[in-house]
Simulated assay, not measured.
Amino acid sequence: MKYIGFILFTVMTNAAAQLMLKHGMMTMGPLSFAGVNPILKILQIVFSPWVFFGLLTFVISMASHLFVLSKVELSFAYPFLSLAYVAVAVFAYFVFREDLNALRIAGIAFICVGTVLIAQSGRAHDEPATVSSPTVQTSELTR
């Protein structure tokens, strides 16, 4: 649980990147490659402000995730990324007025429960494992 802050930072930057990319693509309008050089169109997309900062935020998120992976087990850290879906769904509902129906809410609840269960099960690599062994007195060794 020592690195939970870094894990949540990774999740939130991942979600923020998704929201920025969505906003950027909405401001560009419908995409059409008809009569346009595809490479120029891709560059136009990548260098539009919201898309560019969304991609930059993904890089920050990935750097944070790499740090997390150096400290905790993959099977512990990776499921937390599903919380990005939760954040994106909630923010998309409020910001973009996207649908958040009962089935999506149920799915979000399952994701949250599963993440809590995983959070309760994990520990970092550098945290020593506690091994309960009976203490032996030195006088007992000489017998």
Results as ranks from 00 to 15, higher is better:
M1N: 14
M1T: 09
K2D: 13
Y3C: 06
I4R: 12
I4K: 12
I4N: 04
G5K: 02
F6S: 14
F6D: 05
F6V: 08
F6L: 15
I7Q: 01
V11L: 02
V11G: 09
M12W: 05
M12T: 12
N14F: 00
A15D: 06
A15R: 08
A17R: 11
Q18C: 04
M20Q: 01
H23K: 15
H23P: 00
G24L: 05
G24H: 07
M26E: 15
G29L: 00
P30H: 11
V36S: 12
V36R: 14
V36L: 11
P38Y: 00
I39H: 01
I39P: 05
L40K: 15
I42T: 05
L43R: 02
L43S: 01
I45C: 01
V46T: 01
F47K: 03
S48I: 06
W50E: 10
V51S: 04
V51P: 06
F52L: 07
G54A: 07
L55S: 10
L55H: 05
L55N: 08
T57H: 06
I60V: 10
S61Y: 08
S64H: 08
L66H: 06
F67T: 04
S70I: 04
S70Q: 12
S70K: 15
S75G: 03
F76Y: 08
A77W: 04
A77M: 09
Y78D: 04
F80L: 09
F80E: 05
L81N: 15
S82L: 10
L83W: 01
L83H: 07
A84W: 03
A84V: 00
Y85D: 11
Y85K: 14
V86P: 07
A87V: 13
V88P: 05
V88L: 03
V88W: 03
A89Y: 02
A89P: 00
V90F: 00
Y93P: 08
F96W: 02
F96R: 05
E98A: 06
L100S: 03
N101S: 12
A102N: 14
R104H: 00
I105W: 04
A106F: 08
A109E: 06
F110C: 14
I111L: 03
V116N: 06
V116F: 07
V116K: 00
L117Q: 11
L117C: 12
I118Q: 02
I118S: 05
A119R: 13
Q120V: 08
Q120T: 13
G122A: 09
R123C: 09
R123E: 04
A124K: 01
D126N: 12
E127W: 10
A129K: 15
T130R: 15
T130H: 13
T130P: 11
V131K: 15
V131R: 15
V131H: 10
S132W: 11
S133Q: 14
S133T: 12
P134D: 14
T135W: 08
V136R: 12
Q137S: 15
S139E: 13
E140H: 08
L141Y: 03
L141I: 04
T142H: 11
R143L: 14
